[in-house]
Design a protein around this nucleic acid. Structure first.
Length: 593
DNA sequence: ATAGGGTTAG
């Protein structure tokens, strides 16, 4: 029957005769995703007259795209492929999106629409992923409607991609809405939203969703654990973090590098640096992120020499440190007063690794020199910079406050306020510098300026985890069920530490308040409330772990030292910058923070 | 052929 057909397209005949066993196809496979070999095979196709073969051209262009040769791929697309089919379009879009060539992915998508080839769920997932990569909210929303119109409103792949997309754009409410409407939620959809919450700072929501996931009977995987552990790290939720670790081990889930690194980070940020090191030691494969997480862990606990030692270990037998590694090790030096070590490490950055110091490294250097009381050196470090970033001046101002250097502090603050006139934190700092110098007239002036500009001090709060639940306290908080008990207990504690020699450090309260209000405000700072609650609730012998969103104040620091002494309890406070381990009336930061 | 993951200064 085939014979009786008119001799229609020679092409078709050739196409059918070329299979995946043919020598040319094998040559393409051998070439793989490499530009030069592909072009050689291409030349061979032309010479042998098979360069119109659709099957071969499809393989060629997809390999070209995989080889990341964007120009060659586009040329093949424009000049060699007469009428690309949906398979070619979908794969070009997918590969371009996978290798982060968003412009190409969108180019092919537009061409697909212009060719009137209907996009499929494959098309939409890749295009949405591309929109997520470049956080193109408007475009992504248009593609979303497009997907709905094309009948993919219930497709689990498309919807999972949309959840990830809205999460990446910070639109968690929309992401949640899409997620809630999914008829059957895939593991990836759960993971995308859990990660979305965590990445956008909504650790609590992330953990809550994880619990819903378990209740729904969906089995989590390593990506789930990684996001939840990051959430635990954010929250300082050690109990939950330990539970996740146990769950992973008991159920025999494989612990890969990323998961182990997330565990290190969780333990370190929950105050358990020894446990973090244990995970680190047990790993067989460690990459630069692993090492950096461990060094950072030591740093935030004030264990500068351990951080430096590990850094040298990394130099000797680990992967090359990257710019993040240097930030963490320099910060560790700054917090531990390791000036000469820090200087040497800073120098090695460019000398040994060809890394150019960025703003964050300069911030660490200024912080390090400034904390150590070497304010002139810190200042001259700034002067060497062509355009000092605000953060550098923030570090300088912090050092001036610490060492009560009024003139230099005012100078730093002036630079800072010129650069960032809307940051309330800078005004607070400056007013504190004036207060410490006894210039109450100036304190008043800064406060007025702040009010006139409609700026408000950031609200401080502290959290504490009891029985895998996190409780939040703000200053003079009375929203808790056991408020009266907590206040009674705290008042009694303050009486006891008063007998032991504690006197409120009234200077450390923000001078927005009148004299008689100050002591009251200090007395019921969120961290004190959280500590009191912890002492009431946590069983004897266990440590108290509090997380504060801002830096701990001078008075709370002093009070908690006394509290650790009179109650014989270990108290850990993680503030915005680092850990304070209080024990027997002393703090691990040695009052150097 | 489809979607999700770990480290960063003040």
């Amino acid at each position: 029957m085939g014979r009786s057909q008119p001799a229609t397209p020679q092409k078709q005949l050739v196409a059918s005769s070329i299979s995946s066993h043919s020598p040319v196809y094998q040559a393409l496979l051998r070439a793989g995703p490499r530009l030069k070999p592909l072009q050689q095979v291409h030349a061979h196709l032309i010479v042998s007259g098979t360069h119109h073969n659709f099957f071969l051209l499809t393989k060629l262009i997809l390999l070209a795209c995989t080889s990341k040769s964007a120009i060659y791929t586009r040329n093949l697309f424009i000049f060699s492929i007469k009428s690309p089919d949906s398979f070619i379009f979908n794969n070009l879009i997918r590969i371009s999106s996978k290798f982060r060539f968003p412009r190409d992915a969108l180019f092919f998508f537009r061409r697909m629409l212009l060719s009137r080839i209907p996009p499929s769920n494959y098309t939409f997932t890749s295009v949405i992923k591309t929109c997520a990569d470049v956080a193109a909210l408007r475009l992504g929303s248009v593609v979303h409607s497009h997907a709905l119109v094309n009948g993919y409103g219930l497709d689990s792949f498309v919807l999972a991609a949309l959840v990830a997309f809205y999460s990446k754009c910070g639109k968690l409410r929309v992401a949640r809405k899409v997620f809630d409407k999914m008829p059957d939620r895939s593991l990836v959809a759960w993971n995308a939203l859990i990660s979305g919450y965590e990445q956008n700072g909504f650790a609590k929501e992330s953990v809550e969703l994880f619990n819903l996931m378990l209740e729904s009977g969906t089995i989590p995987d390593s990506a789930t654990f990684v996001s939840v552990l990051s959430g635990c790290a954010q929250l300082g939720a050690l109990e939950l973090g330990c539970w996740v670790h146990g769950y992973v081990l008991q159920n025999g889930f494989p612990v890969n590098v990323v998961l182990a690194t997330a565990l290190i980070n969780m333990y370190a940020r929950c105050g358990k640096v020894r446990e973090a090191r244990e995970v680190f030691n047990q790993m067989t494969v460690r990459n630069v992120v692993t090492w950096t997480a461990m060094i950072s862990g030591y740093g935030i606990h004030g264990y500068g020499s351990e951080a430096v030692e590990l850094f040298h270990g990394m130099r000797a037998c680990g992967p090359p440190p990257n710019e993040v590694t240097f930030v963490t090790v320099l910060s560790a030096c700054a917090h531990a007063g390791l000036v000469s070590e820090g200087r040497e490490i800073f120098a090695s950055m460019t000398r040994d690794y060809g890394l150019i110091p960025e703003v964050e490294h300069h911030v660490c250097m200024v912080d390090m020199l400034g904390r150590a009381g070497m304010l002139d050196e810190a200042f001259s470090h700034i002067r060497k910079l062509t355009k000092p970033a605000p953060a550098v001046w923030t570090a300088m101002l912090g050092a001036c406050k610490m060492h009560k250097k009024l003139n230099m502090g005012v100078q730093a603050a002036e630079h800072l306020l010129a650069l960032e006139p809307k940051d309330p934190g800078h005004y607070v700092m400056l007013s504190n510098v004036y207060a410490l110098a006894g210039r109450m007239d100036r304190v008043e002036m800064v406060r007025n300026k702040m009010m006139m500009r409609g700026l408000k001090k950031q609200v401080g709060y502290s959290t504490i985890e009891i029985d895998r639940k996190t409780y939040l306290f703000s200053m003079a908080d009375k929203s808790h069920l056991e408020t009266s008990e907590i206040y009674r207990y705290l008042d009694d504690l303050i009486r006891r530490i008063g007998e032991a020699g504690y006197a409120p450090a009234k200077d450390s309260v923000l001078h927005e308040l009148e004299e008689e209000e100050r002591e009251y405000a200090l007395r019921y700072h969120s961290e004190k409330l959280a500590v009191a609650f912890g002492l009431l609730k946590a069983s004897n012998g266990t440590g108290i772990r509090v997380v504060k969103n801002l830096r701990i104040c001078e008075d709370c620091h002093l009070a908690i030292k006394f509290i650790s002494d009179v109650t014989h309890r270990e108290i850990t406070v993680r503030d915005k910058l680092r850990f304070h381990h209080f024990r027997d009336g002393l703090c691990s930061c040695a009052d150097f923070w």
